[in-house]
Amino acid sequence: MADRRVTHSRKNRDGDITAIGTPGQYWSPRAKADAISDIELRIHTYYVQWPEKRTEIRVVNGATGKYLRTDRDNTTRNNLDDLPDL
């Protein structure tokens, strides 16, 4: 199992996360579906290192299916949106 640091995200026109990654890493970009599978099967973990703390990326079941999320603070917004584009 690898512990993968994520620094960037790819978003579609609606702002939904479609991939995560870190430029220059052999595994990057990692498609959303593949990252979800990695997390659920405990093959790899993914995290974002914010200035104030490390936060794990987790899988959430939403109204339109599974998606990736990290909670940087006490807000309900998806903080992966705050990452630079991949």
Rank of each mutant, 00 (worst) to 15 (best):
A35M: 02
T45K: 09
G65S: 05
D73V: 02
K32C: 12
Y47I: 05
S37L: 11
A33S: 15
G65P: 03
N61F: 02
L68N: 11
V59G: 12
R42I: 09
V48W: 00
Q49H: 07
K53N: 05
T70C: 15
Y46K: 01
I36D: 09
D71Y: 12
K53S: 14
Q49R: 10
Q49F: 00
V60W: 11
D71I: 01
T45I: 01
L68A: 04
K53W: 02
N61P: 03
A31N: 09
R54M: 07
L41R: 14
D38R: 05
N61C: 00
T64G: 03
G62K: 04
P51C: 04
S37P: 02
E40Q: 06
K66R: 15
K53Q: 15
Q49K: 08
A35T: 11
A33T: 14
Y47A: 08
W50L: 07
Y47G: 07
L68C: 06
A33E: 15
G65I: 03
T45V: 02
R42V: 10
D71F: 07
G62D: 08
S37N: 11
I57H: 06
Y47R: 11
Y46W: 06
R54G: 03
K32R: 15
A35P: 03
T64D: 13
E40D: 14
Q49N: 09
S37F: 00
A35D: 14
R69H: 05
E56H: 08
A63F: 05
D34T: 06
Y46V: 00
R58N: 09
D38M: 04
A35S: 06
V48L: 06
R54I: 04
L41A: 14
